[in-house]
């Protein structure tokens, strides 16, 4: 029991640390850690991932809100309507999917995450969007993509930042830093309806949820303190390689169990 708690806290710290440095919810680290290292079934790992997302979202968004100007609350609530609906759909639908199928889906998401990291690590990956307006068609596209991000969040236990941040930045013309902060604010509200589905199936293990959330909070605080002193470009490339390795391992396990 003590070993399990210590391992879970360590995994949470890693997820929170990486999440705060990369602008992610931490679920993309917490879920494979819980599934591949701690060895809990995929549905339970996804539920734990949503707790990690909630923890990072509340902590980071709270600080961004108090700092002022970074979170576009008005836009966040508008697009959140679609992300939360997606979260609800994903949280219910996941009950029909077997663990190995989820592992393969998660591996695909990690591959996309690795590509996203490489893309954002390159210089000039952010686009100057100042002064651009958002036509109605692009707005509808953003709503649709946020719904997809919500479904992914509910299915896989991730925050969906790897989809939401590019949508806010490239489709809705929000500056990159503002898009990251706004996505952090949205993640918590997406996780709540998704989590309800897992609770109804008794898949949220309380002996893991609290320690994981505590680890995530500690890791996120450490990450925020170290942020000004580290070269995130190098870290992003290292993280992309780690994601790639984890994706291959998770896909291998999923395919073997199918």
């Amino acid at each position: 029991m003590g070993y399990l708690i210590a391992t879970t806290v360590a995994g949470g710290m890693l997820a929170g640390f990486v999440g705060s440095l990369m602008g992610l919810g931490g679920g993309i680290v917490a879920v494979p850690f819980m599934n591949l290292v701690v060895g809990i079934p995929m549905h339970y790992a996804a539920a734990a991932g949503l707790i990690s997302t909630l923890s990072v979202s509340c902590g980071a968004a709270g600080r961004y809100l108090r700092r002022g100007g970074l979170i576009d609350v008005r836009l966040a609530f508008q697009v959140e309507l679609f992300a939360a609906a997606g979260g609800l759909v994903g949280g219910i639908t996941v009950g029909w999917l077997a663990g190995p199928v989820l592992q393969i889906l998660f591996a695909a998401t990690m591959l996309y995450g690795a590509l996203h990291m490489v893309r954002t690590a390159r210089r000039g990956a952010t686009v100057d969007v100042s002064g651009q307006s958002t036509p109605g068609g692009r707005r509808i596209l953003a709503y649709g993509l946020c719904f997809v991000a919500g479904v992914m969040s509910g299915l896989l236990g991730i925050g969906g930042g790897i989809v939401v941040v590019p949508v806010l930045h490239l489709v809705l013309s929000l500056p990159f830093k503002s898009a990251t902060a706004t996505s952090n604010f949205m993640m918590g509200l997406t996780a709540v309806p998704a989590l309800c589905g897992y609770v109804s199936r008794n898949q949220l293990d309380l002996s893991l949820a609290g320690p994981l959330a505590a680890g995530v909070l500690i890791g996120a605080m450490l990450g925020a303190r170290l942020m000004p002193h580290v070269r995130t470009r190098v870290l992003k490339l290292i993280f992309a390689i780690v994601l790639l390795v984890a994706a291959v391992e998770m896909a291998r396990k999923g395919i073997a169990a199918c």
């Binding site: 923890s55 509340c58 902590g59 320690p211």
Partner: peptide, 28 residues
């Protein structure tokens, strides 16, 4: 109001996490 929302987010999450993790640790 943004300050108030931010304070609620930080305080609520810390309270929830400390309560849950503390109880699990005590049980262990």
């Amino acid at each position: 109001s943004a300050n108030l929302l931010g304070t609620i987010l930080v305080a609520g999450s810390i309270a929830g996490v400390v309560l849950s993790a503390g109880a699990v640790l005590a049980l262990a």
